[in-house]
């Protein structure tokens, strides 16, 4: 049996082996059942993205497509603005991630390494920012961007993402900065190193692992964000994938293959990122949540 009967407790296993084994099997069936529930909707999505309507309507839902319609993907990519939305998502996400991680690192460095009276207050304001619901800021932000002519402009989205992700990013960075040994930095200052050199050439490279973690978390948040883009962007040419596919799917009410292919295109980048970076994603989500 491929089930855990680790070497640690052979005695107990021999005490009541059958009961233990049955209990273990039940637990595994339970866990696998949950995993199937989590994955099944996505498997079904992938299957119908490769079918034509006839197959969607007539074959059993989880049947394999008889003649996979890869053309569905080509069609939605070439017919609509999916390519444009995709590109918008990439550069808006990337710009906001870079700004957030840089600004958050600068603040965290100033708070943990430099001496100034207001540091506790400033940190407190960032941490309280974690609790503010975005919907309570929508109307004033809408009015603000209208007045400074940034309505329907990608910069409005990039700056908003940066502002709202700073608190969580600083919170994750903070834990790492506190544990980082200060001897190297102190020695550098003794040798006459400037603060800027210290930050950019010594501290920032030393924090690379946690910077990567926060960057990934930010990337996922920004890639999936819906409300801000839906509210502040009206031109098709600036829409991100999340909002773009929402309108795009509207045109295909009845073409299941096209809808499936569009949804698959929007989630594939995240799935690939997850396959490659799952450990860091798990780490980031854990670090970003527990302290609440």
């Amino acid at each position: 049996m491929g089930i855990d009967q680790s070497t640690e407790m052979p005695k107990r296993l021999s005490d009541k082996p059958i009961f233990q084994r049955v209990a273990k099997i039940i637990l595994y069936v339970f866990l696998i059942g949950v995993a199937v529930l989590q994955l099944l909707p996505l498997v079904w999505l992938f299957l119908f993205s490769l079918k034509n309507n006839q197959e969607v309507f007539n074959l059993p839902p989880l049947a394999l497509p008889q003649d996979p319609q890869w053309g569905n993907y080509v069609n939605v990519w070439t017919q609509g603005n999916i390519g444009q939305y995709f590109f918008n998502s990439v550069y808006i996400t990337a710009s906001a991630v870079i700004l957030t991680v840089l600004f958050a690192s600068l603040v965290t460095f100033a708070i943990t390494r430099m001496q100034w009276k207001l540091s506790t207050l400033v940190l407190g304001l960032f941490m309280v920012g974690l609790m503010i619901p975005v919907h309570s800021t929508l109307i004033p932000l809408f009015n603000f961007f209208l007045n400074i002519n940034l309505m329907d402009h990608p910069l409005a989205i990039i700056l908003t993402y940066t502002a709202f992700n700073l608190p969580i990013t600083i919170m994750i960075l903070l834990g790492f900065y506190y544990t980082l040994p200060r001897e190297i930095e102190e020695a550098a200052i003794m040798d006459g190193c400037s603060v800027h050199r210290l930050f950019f050439q010594i501290t920032l490279p030393m924090t690379a692992p946690v910077v990567a973690t926060t960057a990934i978390i930010n990337m996922i948040y920004n890639w999936n964000e819906f409300v801000f883009v839906n509210t502040f962007i009206s031109s098709d040419k600036f829409k991100t994938l999340t909002v773009g596919i929402q309108n795009f799917i509207g045109q295909y009410q009845t073409d299941w293959g096209a809808i499936g292919a569009t949804l698959m295109i929007s989630i594939i980048p995240i799935l690939i990122a997850f396959l490659v970076l799952s450990n860091r994603i798990v780490e980031g989500i854990t670090a970003g949540s527990v302290k609440g």
């Binding site: 100033a110 304001l125 800021t137």
Partner: peptide, 24 residues
Amino acid sequence: VIALYVLPAFLLLMVLVYIPIILT
């Protein structure tokens, strides 16, 4: 230096998060 490091993030937080909730 402290102002240079803190102000970009702090201003964004004030202008796009705190001032809006007061304005709401």
